[in-house]
């Protein structure tokens, strides 16, 4: 039984139509079908946060989301975060400045998570940032710098 269906996804403000089986996850749709490889696959089971994207403005894991399930929702990936003219989001700029990454593989997920963390109002103290960023593993161990970057960006976003 292979049941291809056509689905329509709105990603970074653009519409895409795809012919996929219902079992295809949003993550594999992005990476294997749409050449949007900024969203990373670290575990494929909700255990690492590398695949974090925004759906209707909230951070979620693309590896446990079926592509079909998010038809009609607004999807934002790391590729859609900077302004159309290439202006970096405050969080992106802070990550660069604070050296909040090394290998860079967890980084798109960290940044998407951080943007949402600030938006949710969960970036009020270093401890709160640590807790609310705990769903994004970083094996390079950039954590202290990530906290610094989120703290910095949170202040910039407010002011």
């Amino acid at each position: 039984m292979t049941s291809q269906t056509t689905i329509h996804l709105t990603i970074n403000g653009r519409d895409h139509s795809l012919n996929v089986e219902p079992r295809v996850t949003l993550l594999d749709a992005l990476r294997d079908r749409l050449d949007l490889t900024g969203t990373k696959k670290g575990c494929d089971h909700g255990q690492c946060g590398a695949c974090t994207v925004h759906v209707d403005g909230e951070r979620v894991l693309a590896c446990l989301t079926l592509a079909a399930q998010v038809e009609g929702r607004e999807i934002t990936t790391i590729e859609g975060l900077a302004g159309a003219d290439g202006t970096l989001d405050a969080v992106q700029a802070a990550f660069l400045e604070q050296d909040a990454f090394q290998c860079g593989y967890c980084t798109p997920g960290q940044i998407m998570s951080a943007v949402a963390c600030i938006r949710e109002g969960h970036a009020n103290s270093d401890d709160e940032i640590r807790e609310y960023m705990a769903g994004n593993l970083c094996r390079c161990g950039a954590y202290p710098n990530i906290v610094a970057a989120v703290r910095q960006a949170a202040l910039e976003v407010v002011s």
Binding site: G38, L81, Q92, F101, G104, T107, I111
Partner: peptide
């Protein structure tokens, strides 16, 4: 700062 940083923070790094 990392010269490969901009590519990594925008998802452009393949």
């Amino acid at each position: 700062s990392r010269v490969d940083g901009p590519a990594k923070i925008t998802g452009a790094a393949k």
